[in-house]
């Protein structure tokens, strides 16, 4: 032994987990949904996704290197995840420049201006999505129809999402049974045969990814399950009260990005609470807001807004929802 002994404080072993590995697992978990998207939306999905990921990574690199003048950290994979999620939240026929502007907003405004990874209060991909939705409402809400648009990009055949059909129909005064034949069946919704953002459509693929994330312990069940349960119960009550004016709870769970929002966006480490109790509170908040926006609000879907609003409450939740300390109970009793 010729080298000097190393002295360091305990612990002397480490789990081997790293930020880049966590991010890599998220990317892996998104792959089934990506495959489904490629199957339904073809080259458009491929182009938008690649463009989004590349521009997110590039913007992160450029901002860190030339504006912040720090060592670029693109290898941690967080920009890739942001790029993927951003792409998954837009239609596959979105013009390239909007994708690039969205990426710039996600990385430049929503992430880097707050101090980069770990410091942003809002989920960058979602913030960018809402920004794009407000800035380019037409392009952001023209949804290519699955399968028919496989070989098309800008010129894709478009149609409304199931939730938009529902909202339109109810506004006209139609009942659920009158609209029913225009919207896909539950099985179709589950498999993803509907118009929508390119990665949000297939609940099945997203749930496979969820299972992977849970298995790899990247996320815990608390946030997604509390969102699902809240939406299910809330819409279930409305549905039981008036099944002709309110869609059934399963329909609500399978449409409008609830799956991708609950599993991948709401669980974003940086913008979600630090403790299981807080996570459940956060999830319930998102569920309630989503349903309120959907049923009484102007937009047909409400997951993005719900998550962003709850993101703003995270510091407050972290401050007031504390883990139960060991030995606390006893002290109070005794």
């Amino acid at each position: 032994m010729d080298s000097k002994l190393v002295v360091s404080p305990s612990p002397h072993v480490h789990s081997g987990e790293s930020t880049s590995r966590l991010m890599f697992n998220v990317v892996l978990a998104l792959m089934p949904a990506f495959a489904v998207s490629l199957y339904y939306f073809g080259i458009g999905a491929l182009f938008v996704t690649l463009l989004s990921v590349l521009s997110c990574v590039l913007f992160e690199y450029l901002i860190q290197k030339f504006i912040l003048k720090v060592q670029p950290t693109i290898t941690d994979g967080s920009a890739i995840v942001t790029g993927l999620l951003l792409a998954f939240n837009v239609p596959s026929n979105l013009p390239w420049y909007i994708v690039v502007i969205g990426s710039l907003f996600a990385i430049g405004v929503a992430k880097m201006s707050f101090g980069g990874l770990g410091s942003n209060p809002f989920n960058p991909a979602l913030a960018a999505r809402v920004f794009m939705l407000i800035s380019f409402p037409v392009q952001m809400t023209s949804w290519p129809l699955p399968i028919e648009s496989r070989l098309k990009y800008i010129d894709a055949v478009t149609g409304p999402t199931p939730l938009a059909i529902l909202k339109e129909g109810l506004k006209k005064g139609d009942t659920i049974s009158q609209i029913a034949d225009q919207i896909p069946s539950h099985l179709q919704l589950f498999m993803g045969v509907m118009g929508g953002s390119l990665g949000e459509i297939s609940a099945l693929a997203l749930l496979i990814g969820f299972a992977w994330l849970l298995y790899k312990k990247v996320i815990t069940w608390h946030i997604p399950i509390s969102i699902f349960t809240t939406i299910f119960i809330f819409t279930g009550i409305l549905w039981l009260v008036n099944p002709e004016k309110n869609a059934d709870p399963i329909f609500h769970l399978l449409t409008g990005g609830v799956m991708i929002g609950a599993i991948y966006m709401a669980t974003d480490y940086v913008t979600s609470p630090m403790h299981p109790k807080g996570m459940i509170l956060f999830g319930i908040g998102i569920g309630l807001l989503t349903v309120i926006i959907r049923v009484w609000g102007a937009y047909p879907e409400g997951v993005s807004f719900a998550i962003l609003i709850m993101n703003a409450f995270v510091p407050l939740i972290n401050r007031y929802v504390k883990p139960k300390r060991f030995g606390e109970e006893v002290k109070r009793n005794g």
Partner: peptide
């Protein structure tokens, strides 16, 4: 230097841990 320190960069912490490098 006879050993190598690998920990947070704080003299206070290092003093509590060991005698020095």
């Amino acid at each position: 230097r006879v050993v190598e320190y690998d920990g947070a960069s704080s003299c206070k912490l290092a003093t509590a841990l060991y005698s020095g490098d």
